[in-house]
Amino acid sequence: MSSGKLRRRCLTLTPWTLTAVRAAMVLRQKTSSAVTPVRMCERHIAVEAGPSRTQVYGFLEVNKVAGNFHFAPGKSFQQSHVHVHDLQSFGLDNINMTHYIRHLSFGEDYPGIVNPLDRTNVTALQASMMFQYFVKVVPTVYMKLDGKVLRTNQFSVTRHEKVANGLLGDQGLPGVFVLYELSPMMVKLTEKHRSFTHFLTGVCAIIGGMFTVAGLIDSLIYHSARAIQKKIDLGKTT
């Protein structure tokens, strides 16, 4: 998708960014509908709906600019240049935005990467809550031992939540929102094997440290013994 946008057929998603956005989120909501078959949206997003939850998973390729995507009930439309949702068929008191994020990453994973939103389980304590995840994405280059280069991203996140009244303005919209921006800095990681000389240097440092600690202990014992002996000698003379 070179335009960086998705058709709103399967999900309520706004245009968002980054070279590769991989999302696997499970949203639980109150509904009485029967289980529906899996639907594919542009071969990137799949939706599975059941009587007690809706599961969304897939990945997106978008532009490298700040943006957001969200999961919210109701049909979306524009009103006075404001993005709103029609929630009349739901009722604000019946919207439960409890959700579980199984995995969310911005690009491919590399050894040792930590995705802070993985296995995040959030329970909505009230109806019609708005959950916002403010994500700071840091471009990362990972150099492998075989010379291959992996260009991906890592991120940090801050969560904010509040009760919404159904409008995406100052009052907010019930749903789960991921708002992200790119960091102007880039991190470069390189895989390297430790050489034998590096190993020898480490061993020598350990041995030297052991001798230093042993010398300090020996000096402490020696001076303590001399001090005690002096007190004993002074006691004998008096």
Score class of each variant (00 low, 15 high):
S3T: 01
R9H: 06
L11F: 11
T12M: 00
W16K: 04
T17H: 00
T19Y: 08
T19Q: 11
T19L: 00
A20W: 09
R22C: 11
R22N: 15
A23M: 10
A24K: 12
R28C: 02
T31V: 07
A34V: 04
V38H: 10
R39Y: 14
M40W: 10
E42N: 11
H44L: 15
I45F: 08
V47T: 14
A49S: 15
G50R: 00
Y57N: 09
E61F: 13
N63R: 03
V65Q: 08
V65H: 05
A72L: 01
G74Q: 01
S80C: 09
H81E: 13
H83D: 14
D86N: 14
L87S: 08
L87V: 00
D93W: 01
N94W: 00
N94Q: 08
N96V: 00
M97E: 05
M97G: 02
T98Y: 01
R102Q: 15
H103G: 04
S105M: 01
D109G: 03
Y110R: 02
P111G: 12
I113D: 00
L117P: 03
T120C: 06
N121L: 13
T123V: 14
A127C: 05
A127P: 03
A127L: 09
S128L: 01
M130W: 01
F131L: 12
Q132D: 12
Y133N: 03
V138R: 10
V138N: 09
P139I: 06
P139D: 07
V141A: 07
K144G: 04
K148C: 01
L150Y: 08
T152R: 08
F155A: 05
T158M: 10
H160K: 14
E161C: 10
K162D: 04
A164W: 01
Q171H: 14
Q171E: 14
Q171L: 12
F177D: 03
V178Q: 04
L182Q: 04
M185S: 09
M186E: 15
M186R: 15
V187Y: 01
V187R: 15
E191P: 06
E191Q: 14
E191I: 07
F196T: 14
T197D: 09
F199E: 05
T201P: 04
V203R: 11
C204D: 10
C204N: 10
C204S: 09
I206P: 00
A214P: 01
L216G: 12
D218A: 14
S219C: 08
S219W: 09
L220W: 08
H223M: 07
R226F: 07
A227Y: 11
A227E: 13
K231P: 07
I232D: 10
D233C: 12
L234S: 06
L234D: 12
G235A: 11
T237S: 14
T238V: 13
